[in-house]
């Protein structure tokens, strides 16, 4: 083993080779950097959008507005019925007075308040669901076969298509992003593969002599593997650096805004569970692995030992 890990041999050969094939190496490193940078940016965006959506989902409510003339019996019956549904997390009854009170605090100082005479606001049940995706299914229970609201209910309000769209948009964006990333990763691998192939070609005479005098296979291979690793690792390093500055000057502002307005705690950069550090670390690991993997394939094809 001591023979394989000769730093002078490995590092010396790697840098000599990078110097020789500067343009190829440079291209490979740049591609890795761009690819992993995009991976990083998407990861942060996806994570944050997911956070925001989860929070919106959590806030998804069904508001069942009651007719003013509803009897207490029917109201009590409805409340018990809703509470009995397994999908329901909680039901809150908001009386006409409470609704007005809430409206007033929400619109404090606004001219609308002066316009209001009496209490035009209906009483309502505010229903929170355990699984926000079932919102439509639940809301339909307040509607009869003809599409009219059931007795005592005036109107049922919920996010409808807007909610559904949010879910499908995130799913589609996720898939497209994944595809782009896969294509970019493949391009990265091809480039690293090519630089390694070129370095093998550039050093074919040395390799021939090495094999002839009995250098071990690993001794011949290691510098090329390291070269691939180095290109992946350097690219990843640059990607992390770019990402760090992007975060520092842009993303962190966006996250601060989201955190302040929507009270979302679990964000990529500001969150307490260090998602961003995991992302940095993951990018470095992916970079290194891609490098080793690509040069490994090149070695298999072009370095018969």
């Amino acid at each position: 083993m001591s023979l394989i890990f000769r730093p002078k041999h490995i590092f010396g050969e790697t840098f000599l080779s990078l110097k020789r094939n500067f343009l190829m190496g440079f291209t490979a490193i740049t591609t890795v950097a761009i690819t992993l940078f995009i991976v990083g940016v998407f990861s942060i965006i996806v994570y944050d959008v997911q956070g925001v959506l989860n929070s919106i989902e959590g806030q998804v409510e069904i508001a069942v507005y009651l007719k003013d003339n509803i009897s207490n019996d029917l109201k009590g019956y409805l409340e018990n019925e809703i509470k009995g549904w397994s999908e329901v997390d909680s039901v809150t009854y908001v009386s006409k007075d409470q609704a007005l009170e809430k409206f007033k605090t929400q619109n404090e100082g606004s001219d609308i308040l002066k316009e209001i005479q009496g209490n035009p606001l209906p009483a309502s049940f505010e229903i929170r669901l355990k699984d926000p995706q079932k919102v439509e299914q639940i809301a339909l229970r307040f509607v009869d076969k003809d599409g009219k609201s059931i007795d005592g209910v005036d109107e049922v309000i919920y996010g409808k298509s807007y909610i559904r769209n949010l879910f499908s948009i995130t799913a589609v964006t996720g898939t497209i992003t994944l595809l782009i990333i896969i294509i970019l990763l493949l391009a990265t691998m091809v480039l690293i593969y090519n630089t390694i192939r070129l370095s093998i070609y550039a050093r074919r005479k040395e390799i021939e002599v090495m094999k002839l005098v009995g250098a071990t296979n690993w001794y011949v291979r290691t510098p090329f593997l390291f070269e691939g690793f180095f290109e992946g690792f350097m690219g990843a390093g640059i990607a992390v650096l770019l990402l760090y500055f992007l975060n520092k000057f842009l993303f962190i502002k966006g996250e601060t805004a989201i955190a302040e307005t929507m009270h979302i705690k679990n964000l990529a950069i500001l969150g307490s569970n260090n998602i961003i550090l995991i992302a940095y670390f993951g990018i470095i690991v992916i970079g290194g692995l891609i490098g080793i993997f690509s040069s490994g394939i090149a070695l298999r094809r072009y370095l018969k030992v």
């Binding site: 002839l212 005098v213 296979n217």
Partner: peptide, 9 residues
């Protein structure tokens, strides 16, 4: 094949 280098030495 891993013993070939030894032979060549």
């Amino acid at each position: 094949s891993s013993r070939i280098p030894q032979l060549r030495r």
